[in-house]
Computed example of a mutant assay.
Amino acid sequence: MPADPLPDVPHDKEAWRRAGLARRAALDPTELLQRRRGWLRHGLDAVAAAGAGVVSLYLSRGEEPGTLDLAAELEKRGVDVLAPMLTDGRGHGVHEITWGHYHHDDLRDGLWGIPEPSGPALPASALASADLVICSALWVDRDGFRVGVGGGWYDRALPHRRPGAPVWAMVDSCEIVDAVPHDPWDIGVDAALTPAGLVRLGPATRPE
């Protein structure tokens, strides 16, 4: 694989998004499979170590860090998985934050082909039941700031989490960088779940 593309304009979020999407698009299927196996193995270990009985987890598509196997295995182990619902079930997108209980045999294609639960929709406040939130990201930095795909969904969802509930971003190891652009209202994450394991983030983790 060629060297990872980096943004030409380091303070431009859109440049970071383009670079992140280009990097993931360059991965071959063998590399993707290896990474997904790592996310599954270390994700199960990390969730178990956190003692989480309810996990909020996005459902992946395409070259995103794979969560479908992780969600299915968590369900088998008795963990309640909450997943985003982006449609009303009739093909129309919803503007409010909505969640659903994940069941591996009861999913539908939502907006842009993103899998989502088919069951009843839960309000944004349902996130408060989660012991752990695992969100999507293209990049994270050492202080815990993330660059997502740009829809702002998690920026609006995360304020509803329970105080003290940790937030992890799923990224590749090389998608953890020293700094990404962020705005005053951005909510940081506590750790990055990578194919090699969980990496703690935040100012307290930086060497003095």
Results as ranks from 00 to 15, higher is better:
residue 31 E to W: 02
residue 33 L to F: 00
residue 36 R to F: 00
residue 40 L to N: 03
residue 41 R to S: 14
residue 44 L to W: 05
residue 44 L to Q: 06
residue 46 A to N: 07
residue 48 A to D: 13
residue 48 A to Q: 10
residue 48 A to G: 04
residue 48 A to S: 11
residue 49 A to C: 01
residue 49 A to W: 03
residue 50 A to R: 12
residue 51 G to T: 07
residue 54 V to E: 06
residue 55 V to P: 10
residue 55 V to C: 10
residue 56 S to E: 10
residue 57 L to C: 13
residue 59 L to S: 04
residue 61 R to D: 09
residue 63 E to M: 04
residue 63 E to K: 08
residue 63 E to I: 04
residue 63 E to A: 15
residue 65 P to S: 07
residue 65 P to W: 02
residue 66 G to C: 05
residue 66 G to V: 02
residue 66 G to K: 05
residue 66 G to I: 01
residue 68 L to Y: 00
residue 68 L to H: 04
residue 71 A to G: 08
residue 72 A to D: 09
residue 72 A to H: 01
residue 72 A to V: 02
residue 74 L to G: 03
residue 75 E to M: 00
residue 75 E to R: 05
residue 75 E to K: 01
residue 75 E to L: 00
residue 75 E to W: 08
residue 77 R to E: 09
residue 79 V to S: 05
residue 80 D to Y: 07
residue 83 A to G: 12
residue 83 A to Q: 13
residue 84 P to Q: 08
residue 85 M to G: 01
residue 85 M to R: 15
residue 88 D to R: 02
residue 89 G to N: 04
residue 91 G to Q: 04
residue 92 H to Q: 13
residue 94 V to M: 05
residue 96 E to C: 00
residue 100 G to H: 14
residue 101 H to P: 02
residue 104 H to N: 00
residue 104 H to I: 01
residue 105 D to Y: 00
residue 105 D to Q: 09
residue 107 L to Q: 12
residue 110 G to W: 13
residue 113 G to S: 15
residue 116 E to D: 10
residue 121 A to T: 14
residue 124 A to T: 11
residue 124 A to G: 09
residue 126 A to Q: 15
residue 127 L to P: 06
residue 129 S to A: 14
residue 130 A to T: 07
residue 130 A to P: 07
residue 131 D to N: 04
